[in-house]
Design a protein around this nucleic acid. Structure first.
Lengths: 149, 149
DNA sequence: GATGGGACCTATAGTGACTATAGGTTCAAG
DNA sequence: CTTGAACCTATAGTCACTATAGGTCCCATC
């Protein structure tokens, strides 16, 4: 049971990842290239499954792949103090909190827009009006991109 | 004053957009191609400024460009009932709310991770443990991508 | 009228993290 | 031994830009 092997589809099912994504991770270098069958099919083992689960979970938590790579390097070196791991996670926590705050401001504005829309004709639609409003121009942005979550 | 003209840089400053982004909007088709000077410089007028402001504001609210295109089409036809405008905005509001909920779940997990990290070695670091934990795998995702904000 | 330099031009490639497609090969169940 | 699902590679597309290279234009000052 410790020598179980998996096809790429098994890994995909077990981790909720698309097969293409797993192959992409391999090209990217974040997943190691597994051995192949004579016919060229990838054959994975338990450590591959664990690593992929780690990656996917970190991605779900919003870590960019670069951070995931850093975490994996740290995890591969168990004697290192975890200050650095903690730093990455803390930094990310701060980013998540600021993102929540911005999304809530945005939610308020959207909700107000929708509430005020009189469901009449486009001519009087407040949603269009609010969006066209010059005075609102670039007052909401702060984080440089809307990448990450 | 109603016949004011703007260089691309003026438009950029007034709307908080990068010059490259404005040119990209033109290639994309969401901004109309303006007239040019003899030397090939773009010359914008007030309607361009208004349209760009509309686009930027909608983008800041997280509407994908496709939605912005739809909203612009609807805005151009003031006699039409605004149900569709309302539908787009409401749908977006719902997406934002679900995203906030997921981010809050994520915040809780990250906060717990950081709190538990005992500042020892990576071997005992719960951050790595939590991220490697199989049982958490793909229990958190719902929205297909983490694009948009 | 010359000059300097900032603003502008095009074209192309790169970003992140995948996703999709086309066209072929392999494997395992029946 | 056949069938067809799962696998393979390579390439292009997604979204919404951003960046770079290598040039051209405009206009304020001398």
């Amino acid at each position: 049971m410790s020598d179980a092997v998996y096809a790429i589809g098994d890994l995909a099912r077990q981790t909720g990842t698309k097969v293409e994504t797993i192959r992409w991770y391999e090209r990217d270098g974040i997943m190691p290239a597994p051995v192949r069958t004579a016919g060229g099919h990838r054959v994975y083992t338990r450590p591959h499954l664990d690593r992929l689960a780690f990656i996917r979970h970190a991605r779900e938590l919003g870590f960019p792949l670069e951070d995931v790579r850093a975490l994996l390097r740290l995890a591969d070196d168990p004697e290192r103090p975890c200050d650095q791991v903690d730093a990455i996670a803390s930094q990310h926590l701060a980013a998540v909190r600021s993102r929540i705050a911005r999304l809530q401001a945005l939610e308020a504005e959207l909700a107000r827009m929708v509430a005020v829309c009189g469901r009449g004709r486009v001519a009087e639609c407040r949603v269009i009006e609010v969006l066209a409003d010059q005075s609102h121009a670039h007052c909401l942005h702060e984080g440089h991109g809307e990448t990450g979550l």
